[in-house]
């Protein structure tokens, strides 16, 4: 396995946590992973993104420049990273906020999912990142929902009991939402 992932959106959309869950879940399944937050003089209220590399072998650069998988929560994210996505790569786009799609490379598959609406329908808009995670799991074989649940337990610690049920529901909702897409 070798996947180079960028997760991008606005601060507060759970972008960094989504990346961290993917990385820890991959490690739980016996792989190597690196997680690198966008790093520079931009923090509060701005854009947020992270690079995640998952690999069965030792990882070289932790910085992703040409993602094989891109997850976008808002318009600026897809405008910035969409064109950089590798040939034959996958893009998960939040259809609630993204209206314009830039020119992509050959064979890039775009999976559209309304994560804000789906999370709101579950009664917790904050779970939008977990809805997105469900979509990613459905369309990619590299991590399972079970290992993501284990990863969330690691990240949340004592709060996991309270937060996990909603997250699992949100992940399943995301899985179902993209099940029909080719």
């Amino acid at each position: 396995m070798f996947e180079e992932i960028i997760v991008a959106g606005a601060g507060g959309q759970g972008v960094l946590v989504l990346g961290e869950v993917l990385a820890i879940a991959a490690v739980k399944a016996g792989n190597k992973a690196t997680w690198l937050p966008a790093y520079g003089p931009e923090m509060r209220g701005g854009t947020a993104n992270c690079s995640v590399v998952l690999s069965s072998k030792e990882i070289g650069s932790p910085l992703v420049q040409e993602p094989s998988l891109l997850v976008c929560f808002n318009q600026p994210s897809i405008t910035k990273f969409g064109p950089a996505t590798a040939k034959g790569g996958k893009i998960f786009a939040n259809a609630d906020t993204i209206e314009e799609y830039p020119q992509m490379k050959e064979g890039v598959e775009i999976i559209k999912i309304k994560v804000n609406s789906l999370a709101a329908a579950l009664g917790d808009e904050r779970a939008l990142n977990m809805v997105m995670l469900g979509a990613v799991l459905k369309k990619s074989a590299f991590v399972t929902l079970e290992s993501c649940a284990l990863a969330l337990r690691d990240i949340w610690g004592a709060k996991a009991e309270e937060l996990l049920p909603t997250s699992l529901k949100a992940m399943r909702s995301g899985q179902e939402a993209v099940a029909g897409q080719a």
Binding site: A23, V27, K32, W35, P37, Y39, I59, P62
Partner: peptide
Amino acid sequence: DGYTGQVMES
């Protein structure tokens, strides 16, 4: 460097 300090790894 700053990246090596920020990267999460196992």
